[in-house]
């Protein structure tokens, strides 16, 4: 009985898809278009996040050491920085090294100036924060350490970067939730029409004593298949679109826009779109059929 039921459910699902092919193509199309929009947005926000991460990694705190500080104080300061859990890495830059960097940057301007005798530059620690967003708090803490004369971390730049990232993330989330809700609505509506066209069949099934689950299964399987196909189509489209975008960036010498690699990004988007498509398909048919089961 179970085997014949499974056979029935499978064959009915495929027959159903074929008999109502126009409606099925419409439903699948709705899923595909919605997921395509969602996918494009995901690609954008993944890349924005990627670029922001890279910029964040470059954020560092420079803690200048008091020129009166003894070597013991400097050693204690290094110890303190390295044991701070908020610090990812701290490296010592001597005043000579600072001068060297300056010489490299300015070149001929410093010619004839005896930098060995008269070096006004302070030695420093360059500190990278474990969590770049916490850089302000960490900088304030480091400033209070003995032997530190001044702390610098490009306050304005860092703070505006983080607020832009926050706005982008919030906007992305809102858009994605909005699109997902629209998708559920559209899909359940379209699948609802498919179910409506077959309400007579459903009523007959109820009259001859089919259980609700027996009636539901073929519809749910149909929804699942439509959702799956509706997710695969935009994934393939996104693959080619993204490849095109990568080529475009390369051809136009926009190498400073660092984009995620193709395979990685499509796999990441697919990890969300496939279950989302399948879930939407199942939910859409499940919701729509519920109304017709009360005979």
């Amino acid at each position: 009985m179970i085997i014949s039921s499974i056979g029935y459910v499978l064959s009915e699902s495929f027959k159903g898809l074929f008999r109502n092919r126009l409606m099925c193509i419409t439903s699948t199309g709705v899923v595909a278009v919605t997921l395509l929009m969602l996918g494009i947005f995901m690609l954008l926000s993944l890349n924005v996040a990627h670029i922001t991460d890279q910029v964040k990694e470059q954020v560092e705190i420079v803690a200048y050491i008091d020129d009166q500080a003894s070597s013991n104080t400097v050693a204690a300061l290094r110890q303190k920085l390295e044991s701070n859990p908020g610090v990812l890495e701290a490296s010592y830059v001597s005043s000579e090294e600072h001068m060297e960097r300056l010489r490299r940057q300015l070149g001929s301007v410093l010619e004839g100036y005896d930098t060995e005798l008269d070096n006004p530059l302070l030695a420093s620690f360059e500190v990278r924060a474990m969590v770049p967003e916490n850089v302000a708090v960490l900088a304030a803490e480091i400033e209070s350490y003995p032997g530190v004369s001044e702390v610098f971390y490009g306050q304005d730049y860092v703070e505006s970067l983080f607020s832009v990232t926050r706005v982008l993330q919030l906007l992305g989330l809102t858009l994605m939730v909005g699109l997902a809700i629209t998708a559920v609505f559209l899909i359940s509506h379209t699948i609802g029409l498919t179910v409506m066209m077959r309400k007579k069949e459903i009523a007959i099934m109820k009259y001859v004593g089919a259980t609700n689950w027996f009636i539901r299964w073929p519809f749910i399987l149909e929804g699942l298949l439509m959702g799956l196909v509706g997710a695969i189509i935009p994934l393939v489209a996104l693959y080619y679109l993204y490849q095109y975008a990568l080529d475009w960036v390369a051809v136009n010498n926009l190498a400073f826009i660092s984009m995620l690699p193709l395979q990685e990004v499509i796999l990441e988007v697919g990890r969300y779109l496939l279950p989302l498509g399948v879930g939407l398909g199942i939910l859409g048919s499940g919701f729509s059929i519920g109304r017709f089961l009360k005979v």
Partner: peptide, 23 residues
């Protein structure tokens, strides 16, 4: 209340299929 698009056989078989009768 028949399914007009299907055959006579299918209409009767349908009633048995949907309660899980063996082929």
């Amino acid at each position: 209340r028949l399914i007009e698009s299907r055959t006579v056989y299918d209409n009767v078989a349908f009633a048995m299929m949907v309660i899980g009768s063996p082929q």
